[in-house]
Amino acid sequence: MKSYAQQLLNLVTLAIDELEADHKKGRLANTPVSNTNFLLRWVTKSLKQQRFSKLMVKDLTTWQKQGRSKGTQTALYQSFSTIRDFYQHYFPDFEAPKPILDSQINQFIDHMESIGWSVCTEYDLSGDEKGQLFTEGDSSLVLCAHQCDDCFVDGKNEDGTESLTKPMSFYVRGNHAEFIKEATKAGFLVHKQTDYKSKVKYHGEYLIYPNNLGGQLAEIPIGFNTEEYP
């Protein structure tokens, strides 16, 4: 079965291709309102016809609800285009996945500290209990000490690095948009679980997955463009 990321990229690419085909045939005016209305109908039709797998149902339903509440202000064409560009950029070849390495995590921690974030990696958060950590500054990042080792078990590479083999949590307080931007630039696709309620009080939780292959839409940095991101 194809991964969520591959299915999502296929979905938005098909939607855009079919929309642009109608532009070329003169069936559809290339305006924001016309494009949004086309995609809203396309989403609803896809759901009714069960055109895509169950992995895509949640996203399709979310877009359908957005259309019902926001109408033409949903800007689905822009959203689909951004999702397509984002996933094409980070997954140029699904047959050759790029692993997340322990060295990348270490470099990211150093980088976040260098730009003024308070970073904590010394506590074991693997249990069910919620913890209250007192972190300094306006923004803080907490990683579980147990996960920093356990999530790389059996991921040893020939060059001495270790690849991520299990989902890993990042707990974030403060400037979430900056965290998403910096994490993405570091090569991590982050997947939001909560805004501020998590095992760590006042911190939201994000997950990264082996090979960046999560089971939900990743957080896309505000104003994403491929030139700014490696």
Rank of each mutant, 00 (worst) to 15 (best):
M1T: 07
K2R: 15
Y4I: 01
A5C: 11
L9C: 00
T13W: 05
L14D: 13
A15Q: 02
I16W: 10
H23G: 01
L28C: 00
N30W: 01
F38H: 13
K45P: 01
K45F: 03
L47C: 03
S53M: 06
K54C: 01
V57M: 04
K58R: 12
W63S: 08
Q64K: 12
Q66S: 08
R68Y: 09
S69W: 09
I83E: 04
R84I: 12
Y87C: 07
Y90A: 04
Y90G: 05
F91S: 01
P92N: 05
P97V: 05
K98T: 14
Q104D: 08
F108P: 00
H111Y: 12
M112F: 14
E113V: 13
S114G: 07
I115L: 05
C120M: 06
C120I: 15
T121Y: 06
E122L: 00
L125V: 11
G127K: 04
K130H: 10
Q132F: 02
L133Q: 08
E136A: 15
S139R: 00
S140M: 09
L141W: 06
L141E: 07
V153D: 08
D159L: 01
G160F: 06
T165H: 01
K166L: 05
K166F: 00
S169W: 10
F179K: 13
E182V: 09
E182D: 13
A183K: 08
A183G: 02
T184L: 08
K185Y: 12
K185I: 14
V190W: 01
H191L: 11
Q193D: 11
D195P: 02
K199G: 12
H203G: 00
E205D: 03
P210Y: 10
L213M: 10
I220L: 03
I220Y: 02
P221V: 14
Y229F: 15
P230V: 06
